[in-house]
């Protein structure tokens, strides 16, 4: 039956061993890509005609910003799967995503502020993208706060799952309203936080960093997932050999 792969993915012992096996296959390529991207971005790529070497912050800001949104979406999808089909492994994925997403959202905020600083002259500017990023950080903190406040794992999984789905519906609305609000009060900021039209030598390292960060996310997710799966297993015998190994 075609669904067997789906059911096997849902079985904790299979996922635990699969995650353990796959982690290096994501970790090493991620490391190589990031190192190559850094080398390309910091050394090979020419300085930007407008922002000079300051633009090189994009090689850490853009991947972090991409991570903050991609991880939240992954979390919401995993939570929805967990809620609809009652799959504990899906909830374990969602639980593993949150801290990763939150940490890179914070990194995106700081790097975004550092990048804007030369232009704005201040460390914080209510720029629409930075403001959306800040609100996204609060969504993460709300998710993790709710999860921590509920002792029973199953209830924490399902309640935070609903919050993640409600949150992901609101992310575009928040982004639109923040951009709309910002356009009211200021001319759009001159700085191109968005992906500027840049030369290949500048673009390639950026794509490497984006892919590298994504693979890094999967690697960390797989490590955390094993822990989360274990903590949701009650009496299954398969834990015995896994834990004693």
């Amino acid at each position: 039956m075609t669904w067997t792969w789906f059911h096997r993915l849902a079985s904790p012992p299979y996922i635990y061993t699969l995650a353990a096996r796959l982690t290096p296959w994501f970790a090493w390529p991620a490391g190589l890509l990031i190192v190559a991207g850094l080398w390309g971005g910091l050394v090979l790529a020419p300085p930007d005609y407008q922002q000079g070497d300051g633009f090189r912050i994009i090689y850490v800001h853009a991947p972090s910003a991409w991570m903050s949104l991609m991880v939240y979406t992954t979390m919401a999808i995993a939570a929805a799967v967990g809620l609809i089909w009652r799959i504990k492994v899906a909830h374990a994925v969602a639980a593993s995503c949150a801290p990763i997403g939150a940490s890179f959202t914070f990194a995106a905020l700081v790097t975004g502020a550092l990048w804007g600083q030369p232009m704005w002259g201040t460390y914080w500017e209510w720029d629409p993208r930075l403001t959306s990023e800040l609100i996204l950080l609060f969504l993460y903190l709300g998710y993790m706060g709710l999860r921590a406040a509920l002792e029973d794992t199953q209830r924490a999984d399902r309640a935070s799952g609903v919050l993640a789905v409600v949150g992901v519906v609101n992310v575009p609305i928040i982004h639109y309203s923040v951009t709309w609000w910002n356009s009211l009060h200021q001319a759009p900021t001159v700085m191109r936080l968005a992906k500027p039209e840049i030369a290949a030598s500048m673009l390639v390292p950026l794509l490497m960093m984006l892919l590298g960060f994504t693979l890094f996310f999967v690697a960390i997710l797989l490590v955390r997932l094993r822990g989360e799966v274990l903590s949701r297993e009650r009496s299954a015998s398969w834990i015995r050999e896994v834990v004693s190994a």
């Binding site: 300085p47 922002q51 000079g52 070497d53 090189r56 912050i57 990194a107 030369p118």
Partner: peptide
């Protein structure tokens, strides 16, 4: 020196590396 932007580029890289 990062073309004079060292005070912004390196902290940005540091925070991201710390996150990783």
């Amino acid at each position: 020196e990062m073309g004079g932007y060292a005070a912004f580029v390196w902290p940005a890289y540091a925070i991201t590396f710390a996150a990783i």
